[in-house]
Design a protein around this nucleic acid. Structure first.
Lengths: 106, 106
DNA sequence: TGAAATACTTCGCGATACGATGTATATCAT
DNA sequence: ATGATATACATCGTATCGCGAAGTATTTCA
């Protein structure tokens, strides 16, 4: 998948990954992997970004000696996911423009 | 439309805009406008990028005293457009991931 | 005569995905 | 027991890229 195409998708994908259940970094990557891959450095950057824009909240838990940060989606995060549907509609129109056949130019 | 979402779409949109008929900068912007907007500085950067990666070729013409650069899509450009279909399929899967409902997390 | 449209160009900024690298602990095979 | 692999999070620097701002010209039209 083209790297440029991933931008703008990644943020919403991460939000979607914690939409139903709180989750943590490593698990988010594994859950997303079948659909879209991202490196750890990318994910933690995104999580920090989403936190500072109040799309999610963070709570720390100790799990088997290891530290885990659990991410919880906020109302704003859910709103963002909802708004993505509008963007998606635009994407569909753009896709039609890209794949349209001859004769549309005047 | 989110700026990040546009990345990766713009290149193929520009190629799509010259797919059927050679075109020039100002016209490309106007043709794309109903679907996706971009500034002149963005377009000319893209056109230069697509030229140096052999996705299109350029020919200069004088039109009513004004200089016009006509862009013509190459075989590679058409191939790029074709390959976008694969990316689009991945996008559809990602979209399903984003909009899926409860219960997919184990 | 001057504003708006046409047409292309260059520069610098901000956003951001990623590889490289680092720090720890747990688990599992040998 | 020991070493490899998996788990878990963090930081830094680099490259890419869209865009606003500003510039240069000419044509069209009020």
């Amino acid at each position: 998948m083209d790297i440029q195409l991933k931008r703008g998708l990644l943020d919403v994908c991460v939000l979607a990954a914690i939409k139903n259940d709180d989750s943590y970094g490593y698990k988010i990557i594994k859950d997303m992997k079948p659909y879209i891959e991202l490196s750890e450095s990318t994910l933690y950057t995104i999580l920090k970004r989403l936190e500072s824009s109040q799309m999610l909240t963070v709570r720390m838990f100790e799990y088997q000696g290891r530290l885990r940060k659990y991410y919880h989606i906020t109302k704003q995060g859910l709103k963002r996911l909802d708004e993505f549907n509008d963007d998606w509609k635009e994407m569909l129109a753009i896709h039609r423009f890209i794949t349209r056949e001859e004769g549309s130019n005047e």
